[in-house]
């Protein structure tokens, strides 16, 4: 936790020429893993017979409310992600612990989103019966693929400077779309309730 792990990509336009084949794997592996995760989730959601029910958290009026609040929590941390990312890249003034904030808010956001996704896939599956649902299913699977790619790319060094911000931005945009098509819809349809 002493060195900013993202410093490698920060600011410098990375003039080093990527060295041939070795670099190809750097992009190919995360891309393939991302595709496998996204397609795998989608196929599971499509093949698995939706049960309609799942494990329930106590203290909420309905499973929909639980999921909506968890998703909203994830989205709130995603906003922290956006701001802290700008701080790390020097686009916003920020404290020295911005990278730590970025890392841990991202972890929390991801971990909070997992139970929601598990419930979606287990109880509802991959559905296409109306545009909102289609987009939610599609982007929900895509989100976990894109997130996996982002995590794996972090382990590579000397990436083009624009790549991590691009993938991170993609993850953020997709999560936002997933939240808009589910939790926001839920709150607008059924009212904001716990």
């Amino acid at each position: 936790m002493t060195v900013d792990p993202n410093a490698a990509t920060q600011g410098s336009p990375s003039p080093q020429p990527a060295n041939g084949r070795a670099s190809a794997a750097r992009y190919l592996v995360p891309a393939l893993v991302a595709a496998a995760v996204a397609v795998g989730l989608g196929v599971y959601g499509k093949v698995h017979e939706p049960t309609g029910i799942a494990f329930d958290l106590a203290g909420f009026s309905s499973t929909g409310a639980v999921k909506s609040w968890l998703a909203t929590t994830a989205f709130a941390f995603a906003l922290v992600q956006l701001v802290s990312a700008f701080m790390m890249y020097g686009k916003l003034p920020g404290p020295s612990w911005a990278p730590v904030l970025h890392r841990w808010s991202g972890r929390i956001a991801f971990l909070v989103s997992v139970p929601v996704a598990v419930h979606c896939l287990y109880a509802f599956g991959y559905q296409t019966y109306e545009p909102r649902v289609l987009w939610h299913s599609l982007l929900g699977c895509f989100f976990f693929g894109a997130f996996s790619a982002k995590m794996l790319l972090l382990r590579s060094e000397r990436l083009p400077g624009w790549l991590l911000p691009f993938v991170g931005g993609l993850v953020f945009v997709v999560l936002t779309a997933v939240w808009l098509t589910s939790a926001l819809w839920f709150f607008r349809t059924f009212g904001v309730k716990t």
Partner: peptide, 15 residues
């Protein structure tokens, strides 16, 4: 760096 992989692993386990 193991951090990102651990994050993914934690998510997988939780799932």
């Amino acid at each position: 760096r193991p951090g990102p992989l651990l994050t993914l692993l934690a998510g997988l386990l939780l799932g």
